[in-house]
Design a protein around this nucleic acid. Structure first.
Lengths: 370, 370
DNA sequence: GCTTGTACTTGAAACGCATCAAAGGGGCCG
DNA sequence: CGGCCCCTTTGATGCGTTTCAAGTACAAGC
């Protein structure tokens, strides 16, 4: 249990300390026999290099970190996936931290990572990065994801307005009169989406817009609650088009509406945001606006790499992504679906899922398809 | 851009190095004025403690790490969620790494974390932990999740056999004759589920079981491919009951079957595994077996805490979870669903979702509910 | 005024490793 | 046999902290 250190390996192998270090970091400098001897000793002793000492002595290690607002938001997972793949491609590790929708925690992890001599740090910030000016001076490359920064710095901006615009156009095409946007209003991104919707509806003053705060978590339960609340309204106060910030949210809304006897999409139409595979891979696909999360993560790492390679980086550099919307022929109602026309972008995807239930028991949720 | 170190703060504040350190770690030892002065200096200079040096000098920091086989598997996210909450409760950070279904990478991150002087490490291993004997000697507390270890060590075992059993019982109740289990066979957990199915079917030798490997990723696309393959078979070679290791997988199978004109659940019944909120919160809920991932993560951290607190821990300690299955009255067919009987465990959940698409464009996936 | 105690503060000694200038060893040429 | 050069190995140095024994200043008690 006593920790084995490099000096133990050196003594045991009958070589010097520096040689063992070289075996780890510059194996090509050693004679093959020496290398082999050392490696055997390392394995025999179960030696594990102390990363802290390593970083202290040698500067930054090849690893990036990513702070996400929540792990169970599909979009964030896409980002993580893209960042992961790109990072590995460059031989970097990726460490992920979950800020759990808590800005204090987000800040905490950010500081933690910046102090860890990471090669670079990425955040998908929950709010406008007000702290950025202070952070920008930090000696660690940092990239903001899915957000537009006015402060100098690096960021990858998804065109959240475009997402709002697409939704609005969809709503117009469907003849909507009253749109409800459902989601956690505190999210900067949501604000932008709403802005996009407003802009797109500038010429349609007759269409009413409403934002319903989904509480802290954006869960299906939140969606269900909101759906129930919508269902309970008098018909003339009820939106005829609901947009969920999350697919899960939208899904919750749908089930509440259906449970309460409101026809979807007959009386109320519902769309989500995320592009969650589960949402559209089932027999009755959910309409969903899918921001290019994977690409955002990938570009984020690329910006990090740029900063690392050009030691004296430009003050500000950013990438805009997702403005060019790919729209697809609409389908009027669930009943009308011609499966041949359905867009099932399986070939573009990278898997997914998420779950629930905090009980001790193995549960089984019964439903259809059984 | 030059890194500010503790000595800079000390000089600038006109105190000694040790005092600044105390301000950071034992603020109660300082006179309030001194503390205030130091804190102001820290903020003014933008000082960020070097975590590496910190850990080197002071031993382990209060942080745990979690290595997951994949982030887009809902079950793993549940684990992460449970671990996160429990860790925060004890004042620990949680760092997550994605092994991306690659055992080399899993091993890599594991070694990395063990060398980082983490307070504890958790893994949801992809295969049987053969390397465990070597790792068990490591000076860092480690806990295996969702797996049963025969080697000495700590682990939290989900009763994967029970999951298999539940599925089998469901299949029997539905009068299945031919069950197909769809998923990546390399996963240890899947093996156990299949074992559970076999055991439960011991008295039903007439029911045929088949395992279809879903490839590396367990994506909806994989599911779709398998579904298509199943649909293409002659009716008598076709399974009448398909179990997806993942909800996404199951969902993909369903859409393929439906696309190919096979009735679900008319001709083929399909169930998933994960308890993904999206799967059952929609208007047509997917049947899904939900292992208690959240609890597994929580218990994992608890075992870690135990090891930390009792410095000389018992050789082996484990927790079994999920054996007591909570079953629910079955529903015969989608058309028969009585919504009042549906189990929508919203109150137990913690949100979710995941997405796809690697394009540059903001995409919109059209489907029903529109 | 001197002693004892209290409340902070100091600074030197690790922590485990990467680095790099320097030493060592062996082969080759003259 | 001596001189060179190249390949390999050595070990002292410093990375930025924490820790802790030793110090300082000041107050109270005698």
């Amino acid at each position: 249990m006593a920790k084995v250190k490099i000096s133990d390996v050196a003594r045991e192998a009958g070589v010097s300390l520096g040689t063992v270090s070289n075996a780890l970091n510059h194996p090509e400098k050693l004679r093959p026999e020496t290398l082999k001897l050392i490696n055997e000793t390392i394995n025999r002793l179960g030696y594990l290099p102390n990363q802290s000492a390593r970083q202290l002595a040698g500067g930054a290690t090849k690893s990036f970190s990513l702070v996400l607002p929540r792990l169970d938001h599909g979009f964030s997972l896409q980002i993580a996936s893209g960042a992961h793949n790109e990072a590995r491609k460059h031989g970097y590790d990726l460490l992920i931290a979950n800020a759990d929708n808590d800005d204090i925690l987000e800040d905490h992890y950010l500081r933690y990572f910046m102090g860890t001599q990471m090669s670079g740090v990425m955040v998908q910030p929950m709010a406008s990065p007000d702290w950025h000016p202070a952070m920008a001076k930090m000696p660690v490359p940092i990239v903001h994801l899915d957000i537009h920064c006015s402060e100098p710095g690096y960021y990858v901006a998804a065109d959240n307005e475009a997402q709002g615009r697409i939704i609005a156009e969809l709503a117009i095409a469907r003849g909507a009169h009253h749109i409800a946007v459902v989601g956690r209003a505190a999210f900067m991104q949501l604000t932008l989406r709403v802005l996009g919707i407003h802009k797109a509806l500038a010429l349609h003053p007759d269409i009413k817009i409403e934002v319903i705060d989904a509480g802290e978590w954006n869960t299906a339960a939140d969606g269900y609650g909101i759906g129930a609340q919508i269902a309970a309204r008098p018909a003339d106060e009820r939106p005829d088009f609901v947009v969920g910030l999350t697919d899960v949210l939208a899904s919750g809304v749908i089930s509440a509406l259906v449970d309460k006897g409101i026809a979807v999409p007959g009386q109320v139409r519902v769309a989500g945001c995320d592009g969650n595979p589960l949402a559209w891979s089932g027999s009755v696909p959910l309409t969903t606006v899918a921001p290019p999360g994977y690409e955002i993560g990938r570009k984020g790492v690329q910006l990090l790499m740029e900063q690392i390679e050009n030691k004296a980086p430009a003050k500000t550099k950013h990438v805009h992504i997702g403005s060019a919307a790919r729209t697809v022929t609409a389908v009027t109602a669930a009943e009308d679906i011609n499966r041949q026309e359905l867009v099932r972008p399986f070939l573009l995807e990278r898997a997914s899922t998420q779950a629930s239930s905090q009980t001790d028991a193995t549960a089984i949720n019964l439903g259809a398809y059984l």
